[in-house]
Design a protein around this nucleic acid. Sequence first.
DNA 1: ATGATTCTCTGACTAAAGTCAGAGAATGGA
DNA 2: TCCATTCTCTGACTTTAGTCAGAGAATCAT
Lengths: 299, 299
Amino acid sequence: MDRVQIDQVRQFNRTVTERVGVLHDQYLGRDRPIGEARLLWEIGEDGQDVRQLREHLALDSGYVSRLLRSLEADGLVTVEPHPRDRRVRTIRLTDAGRAERAVLDGRSDELASSLLEPLNTAQRARLTAAMAEVERLLTAATVTLDAVDPDHPDAQHCLRSYFAEIQTRFETGFDPARSLLPDAGELRPPRGLFLVARLHGEPVGCAGLKLPPGAPAEIKRMWVAPRTRGLGLGRRFLTELEAQAAQRGWEVLRLDTNEALTAAIGLYHSSGFQEVAAFNDEPYAHHWFEKRISTPPFA
Amino acid sequence: MDRVQIDQVRQFNRTVTERVGVLHDQYLGRDRPIGEARLLWEIGEDGQDVRQLREHLALDSGYVSRLLRSLEADGLVTVEPHPRDRRVRTIRLTDAGRAERAVLDGRSDELASSLLEPLNTAQRARLTAAMAEVERLLTAATVTLDAVDPDHPDAQHCLRSYFAEIQTRFETGFDPARSLLPDAGELRPPRGLFLVARLHGEPVGCAGLKLPPGAPAEIKRMWVAPRTRGLGLGRRFLTELEAQAAQRGWEVLRLDTNEALTAAIGLYHSSGFQEVAAFNDEPYAHHWFEKRISTPPFA
DNA sequence: ATGATTCTCTGACTAAAGTCAGAGAATGGA
DNA sequence: TCCATTCTCTGACTTTAGTCAGAGAATCAT
C-alpha cells in the first residue's frame, strides 16, 4: 500500500482524533464522568432497552447497570420492565434527564462552533465539505462483506428489502411468481454464494452468485440500502464476486437487469461488462450483460 | 453560525473522532496502558527531557514520573541527568524500548491500512486528500492571535525569523541600519500594537501596527512561519489589525512592501488595498498600499 | 554565601473505568 | 412441568488515570 497515503492517514489520526477527541471529552464530561454522559446521550429521547445500550456502547453488563443506578439516583432516568418481556428493562429519561441531555447537546454545538469560529466563510465551507467526504469514505471503509447462507436473517432482511424496492421501481411492478427466481440452494456453496454487506453489524446490502457447472457464473439479487448508496458498495460487490468466480475457475460472468435500474446499468458498463443478447427469458429483464473474467496472476 | 455546518462538524466528530479514536486506543494500548504507550511514543528515537514530555502531553509531573518508573522497570528506557543542568533528567529508549516503539509504529500503520484497505484506488486518493484538507483547516482554526509586547520572547523569535527571511529573499539583501525601523515603543500601546500568532503555544507569525496620531495607521513586520503558510494567517492578521485600527478611530491603513514578496502583494490586492504613490522613502520598498477602513456598525 | 527558584521524585490519596462470578426473576421449548 | 437460557443486577475486585503536598538536589540571582 502507498506509503504516502498511510502517512497521511496516520497524521490525520494524530491531529484530528487525538486533538478533537480530547476536546470532545472535555466538553462532554464537564460535570459528570464521560461514561455516564455517553450513556445519557445514548438513551435518547425515546428510551432504550438496557441490552441495546450495552451492545451499542460495547460495555460490560455489570458496568452499565452500575452507571444506570447512578443516573437513576440523580433522578435523570427511570427504569421500567419491558411490557412484553419482563426480564428486559427499558430506560427512559425524566424531565431532568432530558434537560441534562440538552446541556450536552448545547456543548456539542459549542465544540463544533469553536472549530468553525476562527475560519472565514470560504474556509468553513471547505472544512465542512472535506469533513463530509472523510466521513463518507470512512463509512464506506467500515462496511464489511461476508458470505452467509441465504436463509440467514440478515440475508432475508436484504432480500425482503430488495423485492419491496423493485416492486415499486419496476414500471410493471414485480410478481415473484412470474420471475426466474433461483432457489436458495443455487446461492449456497457449492452451487453458489451469497454476500451480505454490513455496517456496524447492520445488513445494508446483498448480492448472490450462481455457479452452474459448465455454464457462465451469474450475479443475482444485488441490492444496496438507500442510506449507503454512493459509497461504491455496488462496485465492491461486483469486484468481489468476479474474483470469487474467477478463483473457482469460471471464465465468464453475466447478469440481467431491468431498465428502471439506471444506476446499476451505468455501473455494469463502467465495470467492463458488455451488453449482449438475451441469454434467458426473464420477463423482468431488459438488458443482459457479460464480462470475461480471469484470476489475477498473484491471487 | 450556520446550523447545517455545525451539524456536519458534529456528525464528523461522532463518526470520526469517536470511532477512529477508539480504534486508535485499542491498537495502541494492546499490551500496555495507553498512558505508557503514549509516553513511550513521545520520547522518540533521540530521547527527551522529562519537562518536555510533561509539557507536550500536558500531564502532572508526579504522574509522568510514575509512568517513567514503570517503563524503566520494564527495561524500556534509561534515565540520565542532563549534562548541563543536573536537575533535569533526560529519558532515552533502550534497545528493548526502541523495539516496543517499533511495534507501536507498526500498529499505527496497520490501523491506517485497515482504513484504506477496503477502498479502491480512486477512493483512497479522495480520502487522503480530504483528510489533508480537514487537518489543514483544523490546524488553521487552532492558531490564536494575541497582542503581546514587542519585547516578549515569542515576538522576538518571530522578528528574528522575519529579518533572517527577508535578508535571503530581498534581491539586495537586507541591512537593518539602512531601513526605516520602527522602535519597539511604536508597536506597543498606546502608540501601536503587536500581534503574535501561536499554534499549540509555539509562535508561528507576527504583525505590527503603528498608530501615529493624526496620520494613517501602518502595518509593519508581518511574517508567517513557512510551515503554517497557506492557512490564511496573513489574511487573518490583516483583518484583525484593520478592525483594531478602525475601532480606535483611524480611517486609513497603509503599508509598504518589497517586490520579492509576491504572495504578500497578492494578498494586499485581494484584501482591498489600492497601490498608491510612495508615502515614505523606505529604501527596501517597491510598492505602497493604502485602504480606507471603517468600524462595522455592530462592532 | 545565601535565599529563592526550578526540577524531579515519592507517598498518600481519589475517582473513574472496567472485570468477573454468581444470584434471582422471567421466559421458551421439549 | 421442568430444564436450559436469557436478562439484569449486586458484590467484590483490579487497573488506570490523575491529583496534591511536600522533600531533596541543583541552579540562579544578588
